[in-house]
């Protein structure tokens, strides 16, 4: 088995082989999404619970479609509050959830580390669907799959990630994943939002100048900028941010023709990304969305199958 973990909590701890394994499986499962009847019975009888402590339509929908296409039963618990029920500890929460006999929890939370804490207390598998400003592993996996589709490899590429690196779980998961796959990553943004310490990660460099950071890039990942960062003095105004770090056709003048433009969505059009670029020929934003379903199918398959094979000594063939 190329992926033996109980959970998928981050990219930082994964090996290149584990990443490769998930991506290969995603490619083979992707074919299901092109069938007239987009459903296989592989995870029939499996229970997957989506726990979303932070509003998210896209990611939740993507996980839900992935689970259903594999035949699993899904349930979801959403709370609008950013905290768990007041007066309840992790142990209480897990006891309550385990009473539902789930095979996999898919957890999104606005506070970093919650999926990891729950994973440590439950025997069910946990998928981190984005936690605080920590990591968003399935987003990085779908980004890597998309890059591989277009570039044929994940090795030796120059990838620039521009925006609020400090608060971006997408940037961090991609930084770990892409450097593990032996690409070079440039983190670009204002110094207030790009931790210098990341320059110590092998394969990572830092730039405060977007034009320069684009010149050699094969891929440009653009991050969503949050308006509230302005109030916290990370930058003086959105207008100035857009001028310095917004991706516009002019800034792409010296870029490679083959440059891919990616964005995890949803886009602030005209702030971090000019509509002409978002909808332009280099943009692969919609490919990212379709690959999201494939990657999540692969992850759920591996984790749910794991508990299946524990029970039955080998799962149903795909």
């Amino acid at each position: 088995m190329a992926y033996n973990r109980k959970d998928l909590l981050n990219i930082r701890d994964l090996t290149p082989e584990e990443i490769e394994h998930i991506l290969e499986l995603a490619v083979s499962l992707r074919e299901i999404n092109e069938r007239p009847i987009k459903k296989v019975p592989t995870l029939r009888g499996k229970t997957i619970i989506h726990l979303f402590y932070e509003p998210s339509t896209r990611t939740k929908m993507s996980f839900d479609i992935a689970a259903k296409r594999l035949g699993a039963d899904t349930y979801s618990i959403s709370t609008s509050t950013s905290s768990m029920v007041k007066g309840e500890t992790f142990l209480d929460t897990v006891k309550n959830l385990e009473a539902m006999k789930p095979d996999v929890f898919v957890i999104r939370h606005s506070v970093s580390g919650v999926p990891q804490r729950i994973a440590a207390l439950t025997s069910a598998s946990v998928v981190n669907a984005g936690d605080g400003t920590h990591e968003h592993p399935t987003q990085a996996l779908l980004d890597m799959l998309t890059i591989k589709d277009f570039k044929g490899t994940l090795k030796g590429l120059n990838i620039t990630i521009v925006g609020d690196i400090l608060h971006s779980r997408v940037a961090k998961s991609n930084m770990w994943g892409l450097t593990k796959m032996e690409s070079e990553v440039t983190l670009c943004g204002p110094p207030t939002l790009v931790p210098r310490e990341f320059a110590t990660v092998p394969g990572v460099s830092i730039s405060y100048d977007l034009q320069k950071a684009i010149q050699n890039a094969d891929v440009l990942m653009v991050l969503r900028i949050q308006r509230e960062r302005q109030k916290q003095s990370f930058f003086p105004s959105l207008r100035e941010y857009a001028r310095l770090y917004g991706v516009t056709p002019e800034k792409l003048k010296n870029a490679k023709d083959s440059l891919l433009i990616m964005h995890p969505g949803p886009i602030n059009r005209g702030v971090e990304l000019d509509p002409a670029v978002a909808d332009g020929p280099r943009s692969v934003i919609l490919d990212q969305v379709s690959n999201g379903v494939a990657v999540r199918m692969a992850v759920l398959y591996i984790l749910a199958q794991r508990s299946y094979s524990q029970e039955n000594n080998g799962g149903e063939p795909l």
Partner: peptide
Amino acid sequence: EGKVSYELGL
């Protein structure tokens, strides 16, 4: 504050 806090998103 440092590399660990940035990694952990804390």
